[in-house]
Amino acid sequence: MTGYLFIGIAFGVMFADKGYNFLWAGLMSALVYAGSGQYLAVNFFDPSVSLLQVVFLTFMVNVRHIFYGLSLLDKFKVSGKKKPYMIFSLTDETYSLYFLTKTPPDVDEGKFLFALSTLDQSYWIIGSMIGGVAGSLIPFDSTGIDFAMTALFIVIFVEQWLEKKNRFPAIVGVIASLISLLAFGKDSFILPAMIIIMIVLLSNHRIEEKKNKTGEVEKND
């Protein structure tokens, strides 16, 4: 969770570099609340970027949330009135926390998940405001601070890699993206990469299902 404090600070510093003070950083972290989405969004505050591009690029970098939601459909059923906020606050970090932490036995799960997500966002808002203040007060060269985002993804990647069942899809993700990057170039490789990933994973699902079916038939014989 404290990981959010740090990448929040990094966001605040980057945003301050663009000319936006800590209030802007706080506002954005309260309304948007997305790690990589906000890092990317720092580049949108430029006359050369159209509003259509803003929507498209944001959608592309955040489209993975759709898949997070798909795996939480069941878990959020207990959330009742808090469900809209739970959906709004579904970030990478919060998502991985849902699977890393277990609800204590004497605590209501809906309340526990809600506490996790609100605490996570508080860290994020406070971090980005600290960064905003530091960025405007202390003149230091922040070149390279955006590596915090890369480091965050590497950490999540390593965490997932440690679970064996994640390795095949992780490899598919990396290889499909590399092929797509070489074929389509760095500015337009995400969408083709996603299509390749979906095709490979869904065909793998089909093959596995067929195997299971024929396995059952053989057993019955």
Partner: peptide, 23 residues
């Protein structure tokens, strides 16, 4: 199939994002 994607897409997408950062 959607249920299956919910399980396998998160690691695949994080792999993609790592590549994205190094693009």
């Amino acid at each position: 199939a959607v249920e299956y994607l919910g399980k396998v897409l998160p690691p695949a997408v994080i792999g993609m994002l790592v590549v994205y950062c190094f693009k």
